[in-house]
Amino acid sequence: MNDLILKEVARFLFPFIELYGFYIVFHGHLSPGGGFAGGVVCGAGFILYTLAHGHKALYSLLPRHIWTFCESAGLAFFIFLGLVGIFVGREFLANSSAGFPLGRTGELFSSGLVFLLNLAIGLKVASTVTTLFLNLEEED
C-alpha cells in the first residue's frame, strides 16, 4: 500500500496505540482489561504499522528473531512464575503465600503475581497476534 495519508496517520497513531495497550496491560489488576485485551491492542498497533509501511519496516523496528523470542518468553515467564510457588514450598502459581508482595490495594505496583502474570500474558498475546498476521499475510 503506497498511500501518503495512511502512512503518516499510521506513523502518528502507532506510539499512542502502543501506549494505550501498555496502559491496559499494566492496569489489568485495577480496571477492566488485562493481559489479553492489552496484548491485542498492542498487536493491533503493530499490524497497523505493518499494513501502512510493509513487513520490512516492522522487521527493521523489531527483527524476526525478537518476535519468536517474545513468543516463547511470555509462556516461559508464566511457567517460571508458577514454579516459584513450588520452589518456596507452596502450590503451583501461589500468590501471596509464595512470598509475592501484595502491596497497597489500588496502587499500580500491587497484587504481586497478578501484575506479573498480566505482563507475561500481554507479551505473549501481542507477539502472537503480530506473528500470526505477519506469517499469514506475506503468503500472497
Partner: peptide, 26 residues
Amino acid sequence: TGCLSHVAAIVCDYRAYDTLGETTVL
C-alpha cells in the same frame, strides 16, 4: 489478591492454572 478488579483476581490468581492453559493454546 490485592486486586480491585475481580475478573483479574479470578483469571490471574484463583484460576491462574486455567489461564496457563489458554496461553499454551496460543
